[in-house]
Design a protein around this nucleic acid. Structure first.
Lengths: 303, 303
DNA sequence: TGCCTGTGCTGCAATTTCTGCATCGGATAG
DNA sequence: CTATCCGATGCAGAAATTGCAGCACAGGCA
């Protein structure tokens, strides 16, 4: 959209941290970009960036403005998508930030299902920890976030909340695999593999252990849920994940690990949140996709 | 602001109903304006206006866009005012739509008081009936509305609500002026002057008469509250108004008419609403002025 | 200290975009 | 049927934007 080209450029400068770098990514000369910025600051009567020897940084006024710019850009996007829908087109784009647990099964299935009915809609799926996911909502780089136990900043609006009782994951021939339900102290004799503290599952585990005498000390730590699952498959180690990231009984996945729910008395269920930026009206495609996921949540995890 | 000049032009076209008229008010040629419009429609991929023999009219897509445009324009205005405030300037503009009752005393006093502390802030005060006031909020032509018994459309947000018991207004030597409180049936023997049905006071009077046997038939109807007051001053006629539009005892106005409250059993109190557009963040000056008025309401009409 | 690198900024010419005049084609009101 | 008002368009001049080259400045490094 031509009329907010300059504003978009300002956004790029803010993200790049220097006019020349921004000009480079925008494939124009720094001269032109610089002059646009100067003209805008002149119009506004206030500098948007403070000039540092190694680049530029937003002033207080700039912070205000950049927020406005990002809102305007995505609001225009929404209007365009509404107009496109009016014209009968079924196009659009949905940008999602999500936790690792959504990557193996849930999102692939959901996106595939949605695209089967709306082939014109494209998706971008970005792995973000819960903090980064919320930041991505705030700076308008994603439309939806799907995260476990978010930090819950004020600017985030929760569309749906799903309880996710934590499961213990182990190889199929692990001694504990015989039990239908796992107590946490059952795990003490065995080596443990855990995600690190930035992740919701680990956070809940640590919180739960504040109240008990035993300790689950990780033999292996990782930031990859996929690694942890596969590690549990090849060694008699126990790890913990949420069910939405694990193959369920009906699926035709054949894997050398299994999972058993942890007793609710030992560990409260985690919560999976579907969230958007507060006060933002989503583009049509994103809103529809969110609705589809919410229906699926309601179906699977009916209360 | 340069970058949304074209969008502002589109807004003017929409209001003017024809490109040439809009070009005229914008002091440019119709050619230039027409081409900007065509370029924008080309960018958007859909026509914004349908071309009629006597001008243009918004298409469905255009309705969507014009709403976005008006939001963007006033949102930018808000950002500018926030930036100005950041820079220590105390400037800005407040546009108000209000009922007649606010014109003689309340708004002049309030604006004068506000401007005494904020001389840089300018005001526009527009007389609008309750329906037009809400329309003005919606199309962003005013920031605040102050109206009696509004129609209460969904997009309006009420900031404050003040009860206004209706008063009978008459000349000082009117027989009823001896009573401290007026019953409606006391008025039957006398000629009545009323505002027409579009106004809140008349609306309430008509509603009240649904339940009783007597009728107050207006000898004179007018759409000017000022006329009605002054007419009551020169003839033994009774009219009805809300107290906020009448001089109070402490004021140093010397007028040949007086007012007495109507008994609450006969006529419910009207409600004066201070309202803004739902979901809109007001510019600093408008928000501050609204706060001042709300404090004044709380002081005068403490519950 | 002196060199080097990276930054934002500016004068000037080429280029792109925009504007205004004159005019066309079409639809309606009288 | 005619007069009028409307939006659209070809073309030439005006205005804004861009890119090149170069400047001044501030830190990093030897």
């Amino acid at each position: 959209m031509r009329h907010l080209e300059t504003l978009r450029f300002v956004d790029v400068i803010a993200r790049a941290g220097s006019i020349r770098k921004a000009a480079d990514t925008l494939a124009i000369t720094s001269t032109a970009l610089n002059r646009r910025l100067l003209a805008l600051e002149d119009e506004l009567g206030v500098p948007i960036f403070e000039r540092l020897p190694r680049g530029v940084r937003l002033t207080a006024a700039g912070e205000l403005l950049i927020d406005h710019i990002r809102t305007q850009i995505s609001d225009l996007e929404r209007v365009r998508s509404q107009i496109a829908q009016l014209a009968g087109e079924r196009r659009g784009h949905v940008a999602i930030a999500c936790s690792q647990a959504l990557l193996p099964f849930f999102l692939p299935q959901q996106i595939s299902r949605y695209r089967a009915q709306n082939p014109g809609v494209t998706f971008s799926v970005n792995l973000r920890d819960r903090e980064a996911a919320e930041a991505a909502l705030i700076d308008h780089s994603v439309d939806l976030a799907l995260v476990l136990e978010p930090v819950r900043v004020a600017d985030i609006y929760t569309l749906y909340k799903v309880p996710q009782p934590i499961s213990a994951v182990m190889s199929v021939d692990h001694p504990l695999a015989a039990k239908p339900k796992i107590r946490l102290h059952d795990c003490v004799p065995y080596p443990i593999a855990l995600p690190n503290i930035r992740y919701g599952v680990r956070y809940l585990l640590e919180a739960a252990q504040m109240r008990v005498s035993y300790r689950l000390l990780p033999a292996v730590e990782s930031d990859s849920f996929e690694f942890l699952r596969n590690y549990a498959a090849v060694e008699h180690v126990i790890t913990f994940q949420v069910p939405i990231g694990l193959p369920d009984a009906q699926s035709d996945y054949s894997v050398p690990f299994c999972h058993r729910p942890v007793d609710g008395r030992d560990l409260p269920a985690a919560s999976l949140y579907l969230a958007q930026l507060k006060g933002r009206v989503l583009p049509v495609a994103a809103a529809r996709f969110a609705e589809q996921m919410m229906r699926e949540f309601a179906r699977r995890f009916a209360v």
